[in-house]
Design a protein around this nucleic acid. Sequence first.
DNA 1: TATTGTTATACTCTATAACTATA
DNA 2: TATAGTTATAGAGTATAACAATA
Lengths: 159, 159
Amino acid sequence: MDNDAPPALDAVVDLGPLPGLTGYALRRAQIAVFHDFHRTMEAEGIRTAQFSVLEVLKANPGLRQTQVSFALGIKTTNFVPLFDELERRGLAERRPIPGDRRAKGLFLTEAGRATLERLEKLVAEHEARFVARIGAAGKAQLLGLLHRLTDRTFDPDRS
Amino acid sequence: MDNDAPPALDAVVDLGPLPGLTGYALRRAQIAVFHDFHRTMEAEGIRTAQFSVLEVLKANPGLRQTQVSFALGIKTTNFVPLFDELERRGLAERRPIPGDRRAKGLFLTEAGRATLERLEKLVAEHEARFVARIGAAGKAQLLGLLHRLTDRTFDPDRS
DNA sequence: TATTGTTATACTCTATAACTATA
DNA sequence: TATAGTTATAGAGTATAACAATA
C-alpha cells in the first residue's frame, strides 16, 4: 500500500460551485486558448493586443488612435506605448490627419501587411485546434452565446 | 449638417476577423462578466482568486497549499501573499499537518464561513444577471462548450 | 535528492492624474 | 471649454530564481 505517498497534485479536488459559474468557466477557457495563442506567436513576438490592432488597421486604414483603442477596449493611455512598439518595429505608422493637427491617422506599413499575412496563417492553425475540439457548429453556438454576454458599450477610458 | 463634428467614438469600426476568433470572443465576454463581478464584490473587497480559494476550502477543508493552488491554476509562489491576506483578514488559516512538518493544511475560519455565505448570495445575483441574457439552456450549452476548450492538465508551476 | 512553502524580484497588464497642443 | 494624444506612475496579475526546512 502507498499510504505515505505525497498527495497527488492532480488528485480530484472539489471546486464547489466554481465550475458552474459563467465567469470561472470563461476565465479557464480563455486562459487555455490564450496559452495556445502565445505559444503560436512566440516566434513572431506578437501579443494578442498587438495582433488585434494590426487587424483593425488592415480593415480600417487611417482610423484615429481614439477610435482604434475604443473599438478594442484599450485605454488610450495604454495604447500609446503599444503602438509605439509597432511603429518602432516598422509594422505600423502614425500620419498627420488633414484638418485636425491634434489627431493622427494609423496605418499598416508594407512590412506590417506582409507580417500580418504570416500571422493570419498561424492564427488560422491556432483556431483550427479549438474548432477540432468543439466542431464548427459548436463554435458557431459558442460565438453567439459569448456575443450576448459581451458588453458592447464598454469604454475603458470612462469606466 | 454636421460634417465637422468629431468622429463618434462608438462609430462602427470593422474588427475584421477578430469577432470570429474564439480567443477574442472569450476575452471580451470574460472581461464583461468579471467587470460585473468586481462591481458586485467591491464593497466586500474580495477579488476573483480570493473568492475561488474560499470556495475550494469550503468544499475541501484541510487541503495543502500545493493542492489548492494547482486546482485553481495559481502558482504556489503567487498563492502565498494571496493566502496571507485571507489569513490577515481572519477569513482562513494555515494549520500544521500531523506527519509532515513542511506542509500546512488550509481551513476557513468561522468568520470566513460567514463571509462566504454573504459572498455566495452576491455571486448568485451576479450570475443571474448573465443567465437572464442567455437563459438556463444557453448557460448549460455554454458551460459544456467552455469545458471542452479548457486544458484540464495545466500546471502553472511547471509551464 | 525531492518536496513544501517561502522570499525577492521582474515583467506585463491595467488604472489614475496631470500635462501639451490643438480645436 | 473640450478633445487627441501623451507622460509618469501606481497597482494588479503573473513569471523566474533561489532559498530553508523537512521528507
